[in-house]
Amino acid sequence: MRVFPRYSSPSIAPVPRLRWRTVFGVWTIIGVLLVIQTYITAFGSLPVTLRGHGYTIAAQLARAWLWAALTPGVFWLRRYLAANHPHLAVRLALHLLAALAIFTFGNLLRLWTIYFAFGYFRPEDASPSFVLTQLDARSLIDLYLYALLVAVGYIADLMAQRRDDERREEMLRVQLAQAELAALRQQIQPHFLFNAHNAIAALIRERENDKAVEAITQLSALLRQLMEHAGRPEIELWRELDYAQAYLAIEKLRLEERLVTRFLVDDDCLDVMVPTLILQPIVENAVRHGIAQRRHPGTITLRARRAGLRLELEVTNDASEFAESTSRGRGVGLGSTRSRLERTFGRALHFDCAFNQDGRSRVTLSFPVRAPSTAPETAPA
């Protein structure tokens, strides 16, 4: 059974992983837009020298790249405040303080770095009066950028939480489907054993001791095969055919010449993976509600072939001469089999039952071909 990861607490929101190339690229684009905005709003007042143009471009790109470096910290602060301060007013006040701190120290660090790089720095540029003159209305763009970054972080976390919820819901749906399939499979196996033991008990009551011993031997061999593949939701078709043949062999000891079996199986579908114990309940249903109710010999025919990318299976049997018996031909095993297939293949499944039509009953099903997950074993001759 496939094991899925578990989460320690559904209340902890997943932290989306930051991609530095994406962060750097986005902020570089914003920096270019800021450069264009600067030239538009201050057209005619900017220096026309190459050095002056370089300073203007570097100043805005430095602002953008500074924010790129601050992005992880702002994202972390938003998550921290959301987790530790439930009151909106408190969070807004703390965000305002953080924005003002970045507004002040971020701009000073950016300006002093640019001044040093272009040779504009003077000792008086470190004075409080210079600091106040630089923190003018043009620098308010940093407050807007902080608000934008907080909003982007909130949206990114919200989307990550939504993806995590969807992923968790999908895992729960898969686990539920697996549990339902396992329950149905466990329902079929006791049902099969009950009927097999009834067949052996009937031989004993009829004092057919040799046949009863042979039937027990064949049932033991069949149970050994089932135990070898216990827990496997799917097996190769040829193994499933072996199960059906073993069950029919047990029934034939009881019904003798009243039961005739035919297997018409194409070689190219023997290694196709099918749900475990998917044929045996259908065959069992054909015996109990068809052949066993007849006064004359009857034939069960099992056909298997590939049709493109689908596997087609058909089980037909001569119906009972008693209409009321064949009308009851939908047993527990057949219903569970259909439910398992519907949960496994969904709308891709074609399943049809026709009972006592023109003296025959037929169960047909087809579903997409599933290749074996490992190297297939050689099917027995």
Rank of each mutant, 00 (worst) to 15 (best):
I155C: 10
A156R: 10
L158A: 15
L158D: 14
M159D: 05
M159P: 02
A160P: 07
R162D: 04
R163K: 09
R163Q: 04
R163V: 04
D164F: 07
E166M: 14
R167W: 00
R168L: 11
R168Q: 12
E169G: 05
E169N: 03
E170P: 00
E170H: 05
Q175F: 09
A179T: 02
A179I: 02
L181G: 03
A182Q: 08
A183W: 04
A183I: 00
L184A: 04
R185D: 05
R185Q: 07
R185E: 08
Q186V: 01
Q187H: 13
Q189N: 00
H191Y: 05
L193Q: 01
F194H: 01
N195L: 08
N195K: 06
A196P: 01
A196H: 00
A196D: 10
H197D: 13
H197R: 11
A199H: 15
A201E: 11
A202N: 11
A202R: 13
A202Q: 14
A202C: 11
L203W: 12
L203P: 13
I204F: 13
E206S: 12
E206V: 11
R207N: 12
R207A: 11
R207Y: 15
R207I: 09
E208V: 07
E208S: 14
N209M: 15
N209A: 15
K211G: 01
A212K: 08
V213Q: 13
V213L: 11
E214Q: 12
A215F: 09
T217F: 15
T217E: 15
Q218N: 07
L219Q: 05
L223W: 00
R224E: 14
R224F: 03
M227W: 14
M227A: 13
E228L: 12
E228D: 13
A230T: 10
A230L: 14
G231R: 11
P233D: 02
E234M: 04
E234R: 04
E234P: 04
I235H: 07
I235N: 03
I235D: 07
E236R: 14
L237P: 09
W238R: 02
L241A: 04
